[in-house]
Design a protein around this nucleic acid. Structure first.
Lengths: 180, 180
DNA sequence: GTCGATTATGTCAGAGTTGACATAGATGGC
DNA sequence: GCCATCTATGTCAACTCTGACATAATCGAC
C-alpha cells in the first residue's frame, strides 16, 4: 500500500540493493524513459518504505554528512511488489503536449510547424537508436522470470512507441508540405 | 506566458467560445484523450487568463449562483497560442505505469500477467474503435488551416498509438504463454 | 597537499493536480 | 407542485512533483 513511486523504487531494489544515490541514477537512465524521480523525491519515499516495513537499509561508511545507506526490499516489500505488478494500472490522465499543439495546429504557420515536427522526428530517431543499442546488448528474447525479460519487454515497448511516433511525425511533415 | 493548461484552454476557445462548464466537458471527451483538466482547475485558470488579457468573457443569464460566462480568446490570446504551438514542447517526464509493471514483471506470476495484458489489450481495442469512429465522421484528410485538420491529425496519432499498444500487448501475451 | 569532480543524504518552497465540498438556478417528468 | 438531474461557478485541503538550497566526505589529478 504505497504510492506508485514506492513500487518503482521497489522494482529497482528487487533487481539489486543500492543506495538512494544509485537509485536516482537508475531512474535517470535507463529507467527514466518510462519512470523518473529525482533524489529529492527518492529519499523521503525510502524513509516511508522503511517505516512501512517494505524496505530496510544497512548503514555503511561512505561520503556525505550521513554516510551511505544500502537499501533492500524486505520479504514483505517483495510480496507487495509481486501483488502490485498484476493489479490493473490506475488510469493516470494522459497529457501529451505535442498532440495538444497538433490539435491547435490549424492556427499556426505551416513552415514553422514543419520545423517543429522535424525537430521532434530527430529526437525520436535518436531515442530509437539508443533503445535498439540497449536491446542488442541483451540476450535474444530472454525467458520470463529473468530480470532481462523485464528489461527486454520494456525496451520492445519503447522501440515500438518510437516507431509509431516517427511515422506520425513523417506523416505530419508530409501533410504540411503537400498543399501550401 | 501561461501554463500549458492555459494554452490548452485557449486551444479549445479558439475553436468556439464557451463557458467553463462546456470547456470542462470538452476536456473530458474528446480532448481528454490527450489533455485533461477538471472544472476546479479550469475556473481559476480562466480567471488568470482574463487577468493576463489573453481571454475575456461575456456575462449572460443562466443557472447557478454566478450566472453563466461565455469566454473567448482575445487577439492577444490568439497570438500567444499561435506562438506557443510552434515552440518546442517542454519535455515532461514520462511515467508509464504499464511499462513500469512490465519492467518488474519478472517477479510476478505469468498467468496473472496474461490476464492483466488481456484486459489492457481489450481497453486499447475499445479506444481504437472509438478513435476510428470519430475519424470517419471527419472529412478525409482535411486541409491544414481548418479546425478539422487539427482534430484529424490528433486522431491519426491516437489511432497509431493504440495500434502500437495493441501489438505490444499481443506480443507480451504470446511471450508469457509460449514457454511455461 | 590542494582542488575540483563525484558520491552521498537531506530539506523546503512553489507549482500543478485531484477530489471533496458548497451553492443554486433551469429543465423536465410524474 | 415536487423532485431529480443537469447546468453552472466557485473554494479548499491534500498530495505529487520540481528545482533550489544545504552539507560534507571521498577520490584522483596535478
Amino acid at each position: 500500500m504505497t504510492s506508485t513511486l514506492g513500487y518503482a523504487i521497489l522494482a529497482v531494489l528487487a533487481r539489486r540493493p543500492r543506495s538512494g544515490y544509485d537509485l536516482a541514477a537508475a531512474m535517470n537512465r535507463p529507467m527514466g524513459y518510462f519512470w523518473t524521480a529525482g533524489h529529492s523525491q527518492i529519499h523521503p519515499e525510502l524513509q516511508r518504505l522503511v517505516a512501512a516495513g517494505l524496505a530496510s537499509f544497512e548503514q555503511v561508511p561512505g561520503p556525505g554528512p550521513q554516510g551511505k545507506k544500502i537499501y533492500s526490499p524486505t520479504a514483505e516489500g517483495l510480496a507487495a511488489l509481486r501483488r502490485w505488478v498484476v493489479e490493473p494500472p490506475q488510469s493516470r490522465p494522459e497529457r501529451d503536449e505535442m498532440v495538444l499543439k497538433t490539435y491547435a495546429s490549424w492556427v499556426a504557420d505551416p513552415a514553422e510547424l514543419v520545423r517543429l515536427f522535424r525537430e521532434e522526428l530527430a529526437a525520436h530517431e535518436r531515442r530509437l537508436s539508443a533503445y535498439e543499442k540497449e536491446r542488442d546488448a541483451l540476450p535474444e528474447v530472454p525467458a520470463h522470470g529473468s530480470q532481462a525479460f523485464g528489461s527486454y519487454a520494456a525496451l520492445w515497448c519503447g522501440i515500438s512507441y518510437e516507431r509509431h511516433r516517427i511515422a506520425w511525425c513523417r506523416w505530419m511533415i508530409g501533410q504540411l508540405g503537400v498543399d501550401r
